[in-house]
Design a protein around this nucleic acid. Structure first.
Lengths: 185, 185
DNA sequence: CGGCGCATGTAACTTGTTACATGATTCC
DNA sequence: GGAATCATGTAACAAGTTACATGCGCCG
């Protein structure tokens, strides 16, 4: 059974439903907007765009007014939109996560207590910062919303980041407390 | 820069600190105990065990009393323990997560509301079940604890699963509520 | 005109999964 | 005796990252 087809193509098709984009722009959007739940590299994006074009799910787009060459934008085709919808309806595969931090915590008996605490603190700090970014992004969103966009969806995805991020931070604080108690015992 | 070395070897070394194990047993432990934050396949484990043995970080272990052949257990060497400790102290790399569910939610404008709700419900159910498993595992732990084991560490890792799992479930419920409101509007 | 950011792409590599081959042992 | 599970391993493939090559256009 070939369970997994790469999801890169559907990410691309999804983004193209909002308008034509180049490979470079796709990478930008993913890095900036999706960073907390997705990632893609150029090595994935460019070949996949070429495949999509070859299979007729996307096609090169030439702007009317703009004679800007050197920017190869693609737009989605009807067949591409069908393929996207089909995939959207398929059940979500079990997500595979790998938390190096938890591995290190699990085996931290081999280590001075301070070293583990440092790992946890770094994790806590990173996610506190991320929560701050979420907060700012949410405000930004409230100011620019207008009907017809996918605002509600964006907010629900954002809420995921916020809820999970908060759980990370709370957990960090609880664990740091326990590590301290343990050190004093 | 070659940032990432595979972490499989450190997982193995970590498990071997608690006693000799075979490849098959390692897979079992990871599947049962680590499933919510780690995964490994035989295709990773067996070759890595061979490499560890070749590099002198682990070695084949022959049980004294047991003449059970067909079971190739490995034990960690001093050099292996050093390598593990060294890795444990290195900063944790940024975890890469990919949530297909969020991708589908993000693009769900292309889809009937019911289809998205089904995805969320499946996610909610899966994590509710997982929380139930956590609860049972925690009880089991309380009954079998004794000094010298890595009980505190196990509990802290478990707490992560519980906190994050709860966040997943809460988020699901909030999103389902929003989807319903949206459908009625 | 030099450097930086924009932009496209690819080749080499690493990582990881899956499917298969093979055989022993256990339990019904 | 047949099914399930224990057990080890590998080969083929899929997925994904990184580093590099290349060149344009703009700004100071």
């Amino acid at each position: 059974m070939k369970a997994t087809r790469s999801k890169t193509r559907y990410l691309i098709l999804g983004l193209l439903t909002e308008g034509p984009l180049s490979g470079y722009e796709i990478k930008k959007v993913v890095d900036i907007r999706f960073s907390y739940f997705w990632s893609e590299s150029y090595g994935q994006i460019y070949p996949e765009l070429a495949r999509l074009a070859q299979e007729g799910l996307a096609e090169e787009y030439s702007a009317e007014g703009e004679s800007r060459k050197e920017k190869k934008r693609y737009q989605i085709t009807d067949r591409g939109a069908d393929a996207l919808r089909e995939w959207l309806q398929l059940p979500v595969e079990k997500e595979v996560v790998r938390f190096e931090l938890l591995l290190k915590l699990f085996f931290s008996g081999q280590l001075p207590a301070q070293a583990v605490a440092d790992h946890i603190k770094a994790f806590e700090l990173a996610h506190k910062r991320q929560l701050e970014l979420f907060r700012r992004f949410e405000q930004e969103l409230q100011e620019t919303r207008h009907p017809g966009d996918n605002h509600e969806e964006v907010l629900m995805v954002l809420l995921f980041g916020q809820k999970v991020g908060s759980a990370y931070v709370e957990w960090s604080q609880e664990v740091l407390k326990r590590l301290e108690e343990k050190a004093q015992a």
